[in-house]
Design a protein around this nucleic acid. Structure first.
Lengths: 363, 363
DNA sequence: AAATTAGTTGAATCTAACC
DNA sequence: CGGTTAGATTCAACTAATT
């Protein structure tokens, strides 16, 4: 009978190494596999600086079929080491996550949630040809439909100021001091995940003393978060540079007992409401007429949330300022609409919309 | 040669009906297919019949295969009616979206974005055994990697108050007056989508006059939003009750008469002005000196509309790029000329010329 | 010392028209 | 079809330099 050695990094291929570990010995697997990005040539920012993209060999696959084959093999190995009541998390982007999700279902894993990591500070879309890619997707599965999996509902609720934790998590990228750099100041790993993400994953789905395994360990974010939270960990990684960085990093981590310290306070400030939202939601229609407070100047609402007057066009604030010859203008209080023979400021509509959203804009 | 009849609902199976429509005739497809929900341990087929005795992996696989088969068939029919530069949207939840996404990729569709609809008011998780399911996922694809698809970047940016639209959209569920109810006050359709969601989808990826097809029309949210935004629409639906509700609903929608309120012109769509035209028209003379934004680097205008600096010669763009050592450069905003002691970008002259040209076209 | 400004950077399938 | 060229395009955080 093999015993499981924890709190260590195994170097090598994650499939072979997982196959060598005792079966049904791990409580949770967190996996951040290659995304199979398929990037083309260089990408430059509008200021002509070059984006330092992911071009590592480990992210290259010849075809979807090859990627699927790789996915199924590591998922099978993970399934073997996972306890029957254990769960597994995978993170990915639209390049790979749909394939991973379908494979998970095909292999008998039972989906519990898909969770969206909303990035507060994503990289913009520099060419203006798509929506800003501002999120990544995590899939959380149990080993089977009948698993008695761990979910720390109360902890999650506390973490979210007394409201149920939702399936969308708003967290920043890993930057600044948290981001590991080499001697030359270059990032050690191209896609280091923020520890805050792993805190939440580990706290939600494991208990203190549980074993967390990460088959794509990289620079050890999973190990660092697990140690902080009093969980045991196992990392598997091929690259020596990543392993060195992870060892140093995890050695310097101190366990914390007071997990309330991990709470990331949610923003309670009033949500910003773009004027266009009123139009989208039918509170105002394209073609509706807006009036200045005296009912003289007029402007028409456009479908995209801008407005046009006889001489100006742009946002409610811009056109309001231009009409008054003022440097700035609060369009919300300047512009009015007619309802019956009353004139009402459009700010009323904003207040209405905020009231609908009140208490519901979590995170 | 078949012609495409628009602004109507076809009753029947969406695959058969799409196969009967002319090929490459539709600009955009929006699809909200059955979700294959697995509630209470029972699996449901896309047609809502129950699958018997399913608690082993083989049966699950068989059922997923059936759902995949259905998915691939309607996606193939949609692909046929879609123009080569058209795009397709699908919305789903974790029950089905991963399978749909993988099928899309397998069939040669090219992913542009996955978009998350964050619900402001989701249904809470009553048992406290999972995260509150607070979002759904949309996938936006082009027909192929080389498609010249429509994306109204500027409109989306305006709608988001001057910032790029992100891949996460915060919108409420369809409730209140918008939610269609029958005579007894029961909801007509179990999963009626909010019009605000369709408003954004349609405005982002189509132009006024384009044809939008929805193969799972339900109560016609897609048709209502399309009509509001001056797009043509085609709905396919099997259930008579839904069709009746959709007809009444769409008939009561008013179209905008002033279609100029529907679009934000992009810079890309403005007429191209060769730099040489400025010289031809005497707005700049051969020998005139151009400066970079800091007033340091200089170049002289030649009669043929090229420029020469100390070390480079060629177009305004080429020389600007060479001087900066950059891969590219927008010469219109880079180069300036002196008027009095002011430095003005040559783009101003282009704007002047465009204004003159627009005036002439009106005559 | 504190505040302001300038520079850097992040899992990115990132152009379109013309010859 | 491929190759060439015109020319359009960025947000939030953090760090370093400057006032």
């Amino acid at each position: 009978m093999k015993t499981l050695k924890t709190n260590r990094i195994f170097q090598g291929d994650c499939i072979a190494i997982m196959e060598s570990l005792p079966e049904k010995s791990v409580d949770m697997v967190f996996a951040d596999p290659p995304y199979n990005l398929q990037l083309g040539g260089d990408l430059h920012r509008p200021n002509n600086t070059r984006v330092d993209g992911v071009d590592d060999a480990w992210d290259k696959f010849a075809s979807f079929a090859e990627y699927d084959d790789f996915t199924r093999r590591w998922l099978a190995a993970a399934r073997r080491v996972l306890k029957d009541d254990g769960t597994l998390w995978v993170i990915g982007s639209y390049h790979n996550i749909f394939r991973v999700g379908a494979s998970l279902q095909d292999m008998g894993y039972w989906m519990l949630n898909d969770v969206v990591w909303r990035k507060t500070n994503p990289m913009p879309n520099f060419r203006g040809r798509r929506f800003t890619n501002a999120h990544e997707t995590l899939i959380w599965v149990a080993k089977s439909e009948s698993s008695k999996y761990t979910f720390n509902y109360e902890s999650m609720k506390e973490l979210n100021e007394g409201l149920q934790m939702r399936s969308d998590w708003t967290l920043p990228l890993c930057t600044g001091a948290e981001r590991l750099k080499d001697a030359e100041g270059a990032k050690v790993h191209p896609t280091q995940k923020p520890e805050s993400l792993l805190y939440r994953v580990i706290m939600a789905s494991t208990n203190p003393g549980d074993v967390v395994l990460d088959p794509f360990f990289g620079t050890g974010t999973t190990g660092a978060a697990a140690k902080k939270l009093g969980r045991k960990w196992i990392g598997i990684e091929r690259e020596q540079d990543y392993i060195d960085a992870a060892r140093t990093r995890i050695n310097s981590v101190e366990e914390i007992s007071d997990t309330s310290l991990l709470v990331t306070p949610s923003k309670r400030s009033e949500p910003r409401v773009p004027f266009g939202n009123l139009v989208e939601r039918g509170m105002l229609k394209p073609g509706d007429v807006l009036y200045d407070p005296r009912g003289k100047a007029v402007a028409k609402v456009k479908a995209d949330g801008t407005i046009v007057s006889a001489e100006h066009k742009g946002s409610i604030h811009k056109v309001g300022a231009a009409i008054q010859g003022a440097p700035s203008c609060n369009g919300w209080t300047f512009w009015h609409f007619k309802t019956g023979d009353q004139m009402v400021a459009i700010d009323l509509l904003r207040q209405k919309l905020r009231a609908e959203m009140a208490g519901k804009e979590l995170n």
